[in-house]
């Protein structure tokens, strides 16, 4: 029994070792491929905003050693993805095409994670960062179709089309925006993550209509009419604005969750933050502007509540009901 067992044990160990080694080498290969795609993305982002990449910017963006960046740049040059003009790097058309593929995958995934999976916004970027390298162009097309061909990601960046068309950059940084003029946030720069996290934590979102009410070298103060946001100018520079028409006024608009039980209301619409699968479900059930709705039933826990709409009862949790804007009718008896 002894020799036999030992043979089996050695055999098992060798199989495990072989599997581990092949896994590690495959992992290293895919890691270097990911790094190349990240470099393409970084260079394209800079060119899109009218700047140029350099060895230093690449090293910083990829968080690697200088030597690794040099190797990477050499590899990209031999593959015909990149040309160096002095210290500056430019993408070749081939490099640009690949970069757009990765960016398309990244932004579609961000849309998916934010809208369908309802991941908190600060987690969306990191999740897409992991998934983007594994999404083939065909899979990206299918994802795009299933999302209804969205045109911008949750940060307001345009999603390149399959053909590689991407509309020119728009928006002015908040630091260059005049005081007291209404503006809609069209883009929040998600790099560096630290300042993006600050923006999200402050409650700033794409689509919000804001005004700058105070600006000094130490601090900028923005308001959306309800809350004031105090930001360092370096952080505020990551907010990109466009002029906005004054928002339609709904003097006594409420969120559906705030409607008291038994009260009736008209639906005004769904919050812009409610996107994707949740939005489609609510629209399918008839939560469209103009419909009459009444808070009918409540459980002993107070959540969920059932609402009467278009002759049926639909139960919503507080989270969903907060995304429906309503205009209360006169108090029901």
């Amino acid at each position: 029994m002894g020799p036999f067992l030992i043979t089996v044990a050695i055999g098992a160990i060798m199989v495990v070792l072989f599997l581990a080694l092949s896994w590690a080498s495959r992992r290293r290969a895919s890691q270097s491929h990911h790094r190349l795609e990240d470099a393409l993305k970084h260079l394209f982002d800079l060119e899109y905003r009218g700047r140029h990449g350099s060895l230093a910017s690449l090293t910083g963006a990829l968080r690697v050693r200088d030597g690794a960046t040099l190797d990477l740049v050499k590899r990209m040059q031999t593959q015909g993805l990149l040309v160096a003009r002095g210290a500056e790097f430019d993408l070749t058309p081939q490099g640009e095409r690949l970069a757009l593929q990765v960016i398309r995958a990244h932004r579609l995934l961000e849309r998916y994670f934010a809208d369908e999976a309802r991941l908190p916004l600060p987690q969306v970027h990191a999740a897409a960062e992991r998934g983007e390298h594994h999404l083939s162009p065909d899979a990206a097309d299918r994802l795009s179709a299933s999302l209804g061909h969205p045109s911008v990601d949750p940060h307001g960046d345009p999603i390149p089309t399959r053909e590689g068309f991407v509309p020119p950059a728009s928006g002015t940084p908040a630091t260059a925006w005049p005081m007291d003029r209404l503006a809609r946030i069209v883009h929040l720069e998600d790099e560096p993550p630290i300042s993006y996290a600050q923006l999200v934590a402050a409650g700033i979102e794409v689509g919000q209509v804001i005004r700058i009410i105070d600006s000094s070298p130490e601090r900028m103060v923005l308001t959306d009419g309800e809350n004031e946001f105090r930001l360092a100018p370096a952080v505020a520079a990551n907010i990109f604005l466009e002029s906005a028409p004054p928002p339609p006024a709904h003097p006594c608009a409420l969120r559906l969750a705030e409607l008291s039980t038994g009260q009736a209301a008209h639906v005004l619409g769904l919050d812009d933050r409610c996107q994707g699968y949740s939005r489609r479900r609510l629209m399918d059930l008839g939560f469209t502007a103009g419909a009459t709705i009444r808070a009918a039933l409540t459980t002993f826990a107070g959540d969920p509540r059932a609402y009467e709409i278009r002759g049926t009862l639909v139960a919503l949790r507080r989270e969903q009901a907060s995304q429906v804007l309503v205009q209360p009718l006169e108090k029901a008896s």
Binding site: Y277, S278, V314, A315, L316, R317
Partner: peptide, 8 residues
């Protein structure tokens, strides 16, 4: 993907 609705 996730969303809560419940028809009664």
């Amino acid at each position: 993907a996730s969303a809560f609705t419940l028809e009664l």
